[in-house]
């Protein structure tokens, strides 16, 4: 199996710092922002972003998780039932700016499902999307507002984001 490192710990940190600044710039501050990560690694990235916001703006932003499993469009089609993770939306999201955070953006189907979950919880002012890696191959008209790194890949390749919280190391690897 061929392995290619495309990001190391420093690179991930820089990318997230840049994304945080872009979010602040686009939203003219951090007011009314709620960050919702997609389990498992999206939640860790969401927490890291919140930490960066705290050092930049001095304000702690609400962080939650949104599990899109129950809204997937392939329930009953795959052999294995996808495992459920936690949904935890810590504050009412009506009229808030919700930023969905995930590690890898691929087909866009998870993001579609996550948006439907969020809309069942309330009516946010808008929904934005931040991802660490955009690997292409979209199957739905979805694009990210904030991207850590664009990584063109073939369909056969696998993009793996490893984070200290779950994997003991910060890196992004492309496997064939």
């Amino acid at each position: 199996m061929k392995k290619k490192h495309i990001m190391d710990a420093k690179g991930i940190e820089r990318a997230l710092t840049r994304i945080a600044h872009e979010i602040i710039e686009k939203n003219k501050g951090v007011e009314d922002i709620v960050i919702l990560g997609i389990p498992t690694r999206g939640v860790h990235i969401a927490r890291r972003l919140s930490h960066i916001f705290k050092t930049i703006e001095g304000a702690a932003l609400p962080v939650g998780s949104v599990d899109a499993t129950l809204y997937r469009d392939d329930i009953g089609m795959k052999e294995v039932q996808p495992a459920l993770k936690r949904t935890d939306i810590p504050v009412p999201i009506d009229n808030k700016k919700v930023i969905i955070v995930d590690d890898v953006l691929f087909t866009g189907r998870t993001i579609r499902a996550a948006m439907n979950v969020i809309i069942d919880f309330g009516r946010p002012a808008n929904i934005q999307l931040a991802v660490l890696i955009d690997r292409g191959h979209r199957e739905l008209p979805i694009r990210a507002d904030y991207v850590g790194k664009n990584a063109p890949t073939s369909m056969q390749e696998k993009v793996k984001v490893h984070l200290k919280e779950t994997d003991g190391v910060d890196e992004v690897v492309v496997e064939e």
């Binding site: 129950l70 809204y71 009953g76 459920l84 936690r86 949904t87 935890d88 069942d120 919880f121």
Partner: peptide, 24 residues
């Protein structure tokens, strides 16, 4: 049991419904 733990949260939502088994 672990799947049920995740489902508890659905019953605490304001809209206590998920589309998972639509059409079943």
């Amino acid at each position: 049991l672990s799947t049920a733990e995740s489902f508890k949260e659905v019953s605490e939502r304001e809209i206590k419904k998920v589309p998972t088994l639509r059409g079943r």
